[in-house]
Design a protein around this nucleic acid. Structure first.
Lengths: 245, 245
DNA sequence: GTAGTCCGATTGTCCGGACAAACGCATTGA
DNA sequence: TCAATGCGTTTGTCCGGACAATCGGACTAC
């Protein structure tokens, strides 16, 4: 069976990208079954009227995503696994929305404070300089789910409380033109203090899932430092990793 | 100041790889400071006697690692951040060893059992078919740190108890020629049961950090399913993520 | 029968060139 | 003064070709 592939040379979308999207769709859709060969690059290039480098670029992008495997002397195969989506910088808001939970947010604090030593170190600003501080309670189905404490460099973003309650922090940053690039995360656990327990409607000493994260934009600037606690019965971190050899 | 770059055409190491390694070393070493321009690709290619595609391939690999950023009309800059290592499939053994903790392992169970429904689903084998089961206690400085429960498809690996105690499971898989490719992880928290508490020398009900992971090789075959619990005072998950736009 | 060798197939690496698109800056015009 | 335009610089995309390295199977020799 021959896969139907076409490229539109009048489109501004790069040719390799058109091809990689079609291949990805074919894999997702099941037209290309796991383990099946993709046909050699030269023949594929000839069939599409493209050069081999262009076809290779398309295939490479899917190899990077973990959807394909190349073997010299053999060919390119569709990976044979449950792995579908690669790791992303997970946003609690998006996670919940994807799970169909319709998250609600209550902003408890939204102010400007002098940076503590810890915050200053994470954001690479001077200790005592002004930073934004936001504390939010996130709920799903009316139940508290997580308590989110964030600090941001001042002047980076207009932190409107209403907007914070309507959407997520990451979405606000993205629509403000900030390109999120990388993050350093630390995930742990600890017992709830009395104050934390009350906020999350848990008994004191209950196990909590904790996450600290510093996020950087594409120039390496720290744009956010978060210290979050989650109710473990209602949330866990799920993700997929790729190993780069 | 001119960076000293050379390539050895008689070496079997690909030219683009030689170049990317030298650039990475220069960044790591501080010879290329964050924010500095790399010099345009064409001039760089001429200086090294390479073609532009080769130089681009080298630079691209570092962009993928998050060390460099390209900007059209501007140039290629060194990223300006604390980000050093990209995300890897973290192995507890390696993590501990890197922290200079000299981990010790006690193998408690090393046997073959019929697969439970959960294990069978994770490893994509028939329920009731034979799988290896390994339970280990990992200690650092004589203190228990984590309890590791793993299941592996039978026939994949020779699980020698002595070797399991001397090294980590991932190292054994790698040296058996298995190429680890991706993993699906879930990290959560819960209170310790009486049995778990005793194993880890914690009080009953103490918060524990939990991780479930299924690891796949490069053909998409599941090669390991692990269900681990950690003492949160002694261990947390630290990693760096990259966002792929 | 078994081990070693050869060979076709396929990807990996590398070259040199061409034009397009985006960015930053200086110049120009209102 | 300030916005629009133009221009040089640099990366992005694409081409066509060449040879090397590796894989797997067929063939051969013992």
């Amino acid at each position: 069976m021959q896969l139907e592939l076409r490229v539109d040379r009048s489109s501004p979308v790069p040719l390799y990208f058109q091809l990689s999207q079609q291949l990805e769709a074919a894999i997702e859709h099941g037209a290309l079954t796991p383990g099946s060969l993709l046909g050699n690059e030269i023949e594929l290039a000839a069939r599409l009227g493209l050069s081999r480098p262009t076809v290779r670029q398309a295939i490479q992008s899917l190899v990077d995503k973990g959807l394909l495997v190349r073997r010299r002397g053999v060919g390119t195969q569709v990976v044979h696994s449950q792995v579908k989506r690669p790791l992303e910088l997970s946003s609690l808001y998006d996670d919940l929305e994807a799970a169909g939970q319709r998250p609600a947010t209550t902003v408890l604090i939204n102010t400007v404070v002098p940076a503590s030593a810890e915050v200053a170190a994470a954001l690479a600003v001077a200790e005592g300089s002004e930073v934004h501080r936001v504390e939010r309670l996130r709920l799903a189905h009316g139940e508290p789910m997580a308590y989110l404490s964030n600090h941001l460099p001042s002047g980076l973003l207009d932190l409107d409380t209403a907007q914070l309650e309507a959407t997520g922090l990451y979405r606000m940053m993205r629509s403000a033109g900030i390109t999120l690039h990388s993050a350093r995360q630390s995930i742990g656990a600890r017992a709830a203090t009395a104050a934390e327990a009350e906020r999350l409607a848990e008994p004191e000493g209950a196990p909590l899932l904790t996450m600290q994260r510093t996020t950087f934009d594409d120039t390496g600037r720290a744009v956010e430092f978060g210290d979050h606690i989650y109710r473990p019965a209602r949330y866990s971190f799920e993700f997929q990793l790729l190993v780069r050899p």
